[in-house]
């Protein structure tokens, strides 16, 4: 876990000229980005700036059109998504992406199975395996959903589903965690709880956070990268970025009322 984190010179995540084209649209254009191990960084930018697409390129859900992606110095540009997860890359989704027909516990058990060999076993019922179940229950406790373990995920509230979204990512034991608007659609109270939960995560986990709520961003990260129209636009501390008139302009220019 700390083997790489101790090597301060190697960035945890490195994007070099990363580009993604959709037909005529360049959704992500020549973005370069470097995160030190253990760093907590936010990515902001108006809707359509290419933030989610950049996450997909880093996580391998989508191939890059050009550029390179490195994880702890290792080139993963063409590594398939599931292998990147095994290399320590975790991610949550902006639009809740769970297993809606399964129980909360089964959702977490599937997450706990993802990294091991047990997932291929066909010889014994799942409920006879102790380890994934124990890890799932433990995580269920930490996100405070222990009493909902047998509920079918489809029937849970949006707030509860956002918590499971986070729990699934944590069960993959990420060293780098990509969080795509974790507070999307949450009430102010729920949002505050989510922020606390992220703050309390293991400090060795490198976090890249997409978030619109500047209060959340301030509480979690030390640096912000601004994207606009798919391009790198600005970078700095939260205070610098908030005061940057150019940043205010792109937000208001895009018709969005955000306090940054």
């Amino acid at each position: 876990m700390t083997g790489h984190a101790g090597d301060g010179a190697t960035p945890a995540v490195e994007c070099e000229g990363v580009t993604r084209r959709f037909g005529g649209l360049e959704a992500v254009s020549q973005v370069s980005l470097s995160l030190a191990a253990g760093e907590r960084r936010a990515i902001i930018g108006p809707n359509g700036a290419g933030k989610t697409t950049l996450f997909r390129l880093i996580s391998g859900e989508m191939p890059v059109t050009a550029g390179r992606v490195r994880l702890f110095g290792r080139d993963i540009t063409t590594t398939p998504c599931h292998r990147r997860t095994q290399l320590g890359l975790g991610r949550t989704f902006q639009i809740t992406n769970l297993f809606p027909t399964l129980s909360v516990l089964d959702n977490l058990v599937l997450a706990a199975l993802g990294l091991g060999r047990t997932k291929f076993s066909m010889l014994r019922p799942l409920w006879t395996y102790r380890e994934p179940r124990a890890r799932a229950l433990e995580t269920l406790d930490t996100v405070g959903l222990a009493d909902r373990r047998d509920g079918i995920v489809r029937t849970l509230s949006h707030g509860e589903q956002r918590q499971i979204e986070m729990a699934l990512a944590l069960l993959t034991r990420p060293r780098v965690l990509l969080l795509d608007e974790p507070t999307a659609g949450l009430s102010p109270a729920e949002s505050a709880l989510m922020t606390r939960a992220i703050q309390r995560l293991d400090r060795t986990i490198t976090i890249l956070l997409i978030e619109h709520d500047m209060d959340v961003v301030f509480d979690i990260v030390s640096r912000i990268t601004v994207l606009h129209l798919g391009r790198f636009f600005a970078e700095g501390s939260p205070a610098e970025v908030r005061q940057d008139p150019r940043v205010q302009e792109i937000y208001f220019g895009a018709g969005e009322v955000t306090p940054c």
Binding site: S59, E61, P80, C81, H82, T85, Q86, G90, R91, F93, N97, L98, F99, P100, T101, L102, D106, V109, L110, A111, L113, G114, L115, T118, K119, F120, S121, M122, L123, R124, P125, L126, Y129, P132, L168, A169, L171, T172
Partner: peptide, 21 residues
């Protein structure tokens, strides 16, 4: 079996399964 459960997971969300490894 665990494998059987992974099939249901794939039915419900392929993209989530990939991201889970």
């Amino acid at each position: 079996s665990p494998f059987g459960k992974t099939l249901v997971g794939i039915r419900d969300s392929e993209s989530r399964m990939r991201v889970l490894g």
